[in-house]
Amino acid sequence: MTPEPVAADAVAALARRAASPSWFAAVGKALTEAERADAASYLGALGFAAVAIDGVADWPQAKALADAPDWDPAWWDEEERLRIGLLDAAAARHGRARLLEALSRATQGASDRAHGQAALATIRAGIADLALARAAAGAVTQACYLAALAAAAAAGAEHPFHAKFRLFESGRWPLGIVAGRFRLF
């Protein structure tokens, strides 16, 4: 099958979107209804519709939750299952090497920008933690990669990877399910 030429376009469009957000601009603030709706959409599409959504107050609490030994790996595993399915579908459409190259290009710029903004955000919060800023940037990197992959596979706007990306775009950091509750920083 001849690879479709649209992979680069779909992924590049996502990369352009990823170039403009103010990552982490809303962390610690009260959750809006729109953010709760996106979080509910993300959780519902992953199969965790019944899980309650909690805000997170500050960076130290966010770090503690993200690094909690009692985190629930089921949501990560479900994301991974979806990722593998999308990767196979997108690679079949566009060719694996070309797809991976496009995804790497799309995520690299976002990752560097997110790292700079995470470093500033933590410093403004009075926290000097190089690793925490990098973990935050890594979370954005992963979300961009997943959303770009969903775009390459022509998944609709309701796909959980798009919903997750929208949460990051709005300045949040979704931390996953810990102790039975979805934690949205």
């Binding site: 993200a66 990560w76 890594g138 992963q142």
Partner: peptide, 22 residues
Amino acid sequence: IAYAPTPYAKWLTCRVAMEEYG
């Protein structure tokens, strides 16, 4: 990234991978 024990370690590893790729 798959072997890292928590989301924090996974995301940190993700950024490290990106830096090496960079």
